[in-house]
């Protein structure tokens, strides 16, 4: 029962957001601020995550596929496809569920318990349009950018790891990567990143927006936003794979 109640509250928050998404003038300034916080500020961590994902994938694939019958290009194919289809979107999603999700939930939670949301509403603001819409929109708009950064860094990390460890020459790596490069994979990754961006920010907004009970309540809603964000990312990943692949 509680689940349905929560789902109903979540849906009505999203509906309010959707309905008020036309009030662009209300959230224009906030939108750019959020785009910077979600996108621009996340780039360094995503570069790091991407490079390490790619290089670890390469080293481990090289270790697992150590056989004379398997051409080295196979490693490139495995690494690049895994990164483009799965890892770039999911790992950056999980990392940002922590970074972005926690920040959004804390911000909104603090605003809720310190009556800032009430203050906004009592001034005649549409607090959903002012707070929730720009954050969710920023998630949706910036996650594909994050995906691109993670993919490129992942592949670069893969090539670099193969080269510096001497296990996979870059030419072989790229040959395999190109051989199994399907534009559909990239489209799939972009779709995923849209969905993940939406999930992380909307759940964090929901948890923060309805936070109760002072500082501890904010802490709880932040934790829940992070954990639920991760869970729903994995769930959505599964559903999308089942639906689209």
């Amino acid at each position: 029962m509680r689940v349905f109640k929560e789902l109903g509250k979540y849906s009505s928050l999203l509906y309010q957001g959707l309905r008020s998404s036309t009030e662009f003038s209300t959230y224009r300034k906030n939108l750019f601020q959020e785009l910077v916080k979600v996108g621009y500020d996340s780039v360094p961590i995503i570069i790091l995550v991407g490079i390490f994902t790619g290089s670890v994938m390469t080293l481990q694939s090289a270790y697992q596929l150590e056989s004379a019958f398997i051409p080295l290009s196979t490693i490139g194919a495995i690494v690049s496809q895994s990164i483009l289809i799965e890892l770039a979107a999911v790992i950056s999603g999980l990392v940002l569920a922590g970074k972005v999700g926690a920040r959004v939930a804390t911000e909104l939670g603090t605003m809720r318990v310190s009556e800032q949301i009430d203050a906004l509403e009592s001034m005649g603001f549409n607090s959903v349009s002012f707070l929730v819409v720009p954050r969710v929109l920023a998630g949706i708009l910036m996650f594909p950018v994050i995906y691109i950064v993670a993919s490129v860094c992942g592949l670069a990390g893969g090539v670099a790891a193969g080269y510096f460890s001497g296990q996979v020459p870059p030419a072989d790596f790229l040959e395999g990567a190109r051989m199994y490069f399907y534009p559909w994979d990239v489209a799939f990754g972009v779709v995923k990143s849209f969905v993940f961006g939406f999930i992380i920010t909307s759940i964090a907004c929901y948890k923060g927006y309805f936070a109760t009970g002072g500082a501890e309540g904010v802490g709880n809603s932040t934790t829940q936003a992070t954990v639920l964000g991760c869970i729903y990312i994995l769930l959505a990943d599964f559903i999308l794979a089942a639906l689209l692949l």
Binding site: F32, L35, V36, G39, Y40, V43, S80, M142, P144, V145, I148, V149, S151, V152, L155, A177, R178, F181, P183, V186
Partner: peptide, 22 residues
């Protein structure tokens, strides 16, 4: 900042795409 991020991402995406398609 947003403009620079998006612009660079799009450029990198296009270059990367063409690179991967050889």
């Amino acid at each position: 900042k947003v403009g620079i991020t998006v612009f660079l991402a799009v450029v990198v995406a296009i270059i990367g795409f063409r690179f991967m398609r050889d």
